[in-house]
Design a protein around this nucleic acid. Structure first.
Lengths: 206, 206
DNA sequence: CGTTGGTTTGAAAGGACTCAAGAGGGGTGG
DNA sequence: CCACCCCTCTTGAGTCCTTTCAAACCAACG
């Protein structure tokens, strides 16, 4: 979506902020808005009928989420802030209307769907395969970012990390400790790790 | 997609058959066709860079697959026949062209994307969470079908089942045996199980 | 300075994996 | 049509890894 598209939206686009842990929308709730994330991280939590939960995706800055509001009338997951976040909320009816008249917007939406699907599948294939420390390592690589010359990765509550990789939070903690012992990562603080060498980490994964 | 849409497609729609184990398309191969499955089962296999593989979806009769050919120029997974299958192969350019002119077809494609994504996520959330026998049980429920009064579920090569649930094939075998011991399923043959009571199986999962 | 929520660490138990051997089934060739 | 072979599935025993339960630790906050 570009400026031009945004300008065509006459309905109110609302800017919002949420504190860590706050609920943005709930699974099965009526879906009438689509969101883009301006700042922070958000988890999409999927609850099964039997009560088990899994985090199926983490939303990063610039990502679109709640897209199911375009085609269904309820949300498929709960969206919860992992940190303090800023986002903007767009009525999906408006987008739907727009896309009917603009083939270009349409193609872009299609593309988005395909990207999200692909992302979601590699996410699972990588984070749910292999030993605990390898999963954690893959997570770190996936979220790593260069910040003034050094690579680092954000971390979240150990419990949340567990819900992403199907591990108990104690195991996450142990895996991080083990990676640190081997010198593959700096000593993890609560919400970030330093990664001396991405290559070494990648080698460790295979 | 309905009859009317099909009629609008002038390009050749090819009907094809594949034997069990045969490759329909390969991950990263140039994607120019979209497929619908007429008969049988197909696995979508995703290979990671480090060589690990996971089955991210099983295509059932009537399902659409290879949809990434609409928006990307390569396939995201390898599609491989699990049994002998019949499918039909449609040039994606044709569909793309059609959808530009038909808002209805467009909405339907959108809907499909959303369904596939949702399916893919519940798949993972269910089959990759909890103990081995529970995963297997959930698989059976998911694929169960009533055939003249009795519920049954197809089974695949144990190795493939393992790739779906992140378990070794020996573990799959043991879990099936254990479920049979508890009377929750009939003695598994190679490629099918009888399920005396779906309710009992469901209770077992939670 | 005590409380609280989250994290780390330890020891023991349980589950999945590995390696290995044996059984079953389908297909081929004699 | 039977014997054989090969592929797959099952089963067993031992090892390794993750979980469980518990206690200690830490940082933030009142």
């Amino acid at each position: 979506m570009n400026e031009e598209d945004f300008e065509k939206i006459h309905a109110p686009i609302i800017d919002l902020q949420y504190a860590p842990g706050e609920l943005i929308y709930r699974q099965l709730e009526k879906a009438e808005h689509i969101y883009t994330l301006r700042k922070g991280f958000i988890k999409l939590l999927l609850s099964n009928i039997d009560g088990t939960q899994r985090i199926v995706r983490v939303i990063k800055q610039g990502d679109l989420f709640g897209m199911e509001s375009l085609t269904e009338n309820f949300y498929h997951h709960s969206a919860i802030a992992l940190e303090s976040v800023e986002l903007c909320k767009i009525p999906s009816l408006e987008i739907g209307r727009l896309s009917e008249t603009s083939p270009r917007l349409n193609r872009q939406l299609m593309k988005k769907w395909s990207e999200v699907l692909s992302e979601s599948q590699t996410w699972f294939a990588q984070l749910n395969t292999g030993r605990a420390d390898v999963r954690v390592a893959r997570f770190l690589i996936r979220f790593s970012k260069e910040v003034n010359g050094v690579f680092e990765s954000p971390l979240f509550k150990r419990e949340d990390l567990g819900l992403m990789m199907d591990l108990k939070f104690e195991t996450i903690s142990r895996s991080l400790a083990s990676l640190a012992d081997q010198g593959l990562i700096g000593v993890p603080t609560r919400y970030a790790v330093r990664i001396p060498s991405l290559d070494a980490l990648e080698k460790f994964c295979s």
